[in-house]
Simulated assay, not measured.
Amino acid sequence: MKILITGAAGFIGSTLALRLLARGDTVVGVDNLNDYYDVSLKEARLDRCRAHAGFRFERLDIADRPAMERLFREEGFDAVMNLAAQAGVRYSIENPSAYVDANLVGFGNILEGCRHSGVKHLVFASSSSVYGANTKLPFSEHHNVDHPVSLYAATKKANELMAHSYAHLYGLACTGLRFFTVYGPWGRPDMALFKFTKGILEGTPIPVFNEGRMIRDFTYIDDIVEGVVRVIDTPAAPDPAWSGEAPDPATSYAPFRVFNIGNNQPVELLRYIEVLEACLGRKARMDLLPMQPGDVSATMADTAELERAVGFRPATTVEEGVAKFVEWYREYYGVREA
């Protein structure tokens, strides 16, 4: 297939591109290479993809309507994986306009591009953040998600609603993927594991919110990518059992689905740090802080629907995943073992 990956210089996007290229797909990657975090890391990820003949990269912003119209008109994609977004819950409090531009305007341009160019399947990144004020665990796609607690979460919920409207109006097959705390090699520097590793190696205090009592469904990058590939290959279809009398948020009479992709093995943040300490051979100096605005105390994914639909559930433990991240971090930054 010929697949468009937006956010191709990102953590998930670049890893997914490599997987699709390895199986013989043609991949066109787009990214605006913004400076939300280290651009050299984004370039290094792209260099790994550029080593494959089936990869081509264009630097553009998905919020640029004329550029996106041209891209879809000229390329003729079979499928689209939208991973371009302004990420981060806390940053959405500081810079809300970045989320409106990328996550709403940009996503609207992608929907229009898919509609007018005959794309067979649009898969897009949603987030576990859409569960917001929900406290019933594990989080299920069948639960109502009308109470986001950050603008980031609200934009991801909006993406699901926008996609459903295009599935209804134009028959565009759309699948939303609610990712749960993705981590692993080539990860994002603004994520906890990256920050913790850097702080522990430098001997500086690491910020631990909610005094480490937060629980997260940490999901290893290879598990995420495996789930994404299987979903790309399985376009959403109408659910014949769907009823407007008791509407199920997870499915539709239109070709629309949402899935959780999480590890289903939630871990307390303090345990996560313990595993990291063991891998690094050093103890952390922790700055125990209160909960940050927009955060939630616990996440846990019910992955039964994903397993039922594509025959896969994530299984990498944090012990395995954190060890692989530390190995990559030491090699990439040239950090010797203690």
Rank of each mutant, 00 (worst) to 15 (best):
P66G: 05
F196N: 02
L137W: 04
L280P: 01
F11H: 14
H142Q: 15
E305H: 09
K324I: 03
E75M: 09
V145A: 15
D239N: 14
S14C: 03
N34C: 07
H121R: 07
R48W: 03
D25N: 13
A44L: 13
S127C: 07
A173C: 14
R313G: 13
E160G: 07
A133S: 13
P314V: 10
V326N: 04
E69T: 11
F218G: 00
D295G: 03
S40Y: 06
R45Q: 12
T234Q: 10
M286E: 10
V182P: 02
A309F: 12
K157Y: 00
A309L: 10
T303W: 02
I93S: 14
L280Y: 00
V130R: 06
G106D: 01
I110M: 13
Q265F: 01
V296I: 15
F180G: 04
S128Q: 14
T197H: 04
P249Q: 11
S140N: 09
I3C: 14
F256A: 03
D190C: 05
T204W: 00
R115G: 01
Y36K: 02
F55K: 07
E320S: 13
R45M: 06
S40K: 12
A236H: 02
P207S: 12
V145R: 12
A85T: 02
V80K: 07
P238W: 02
L16M: 12
L276I: 08
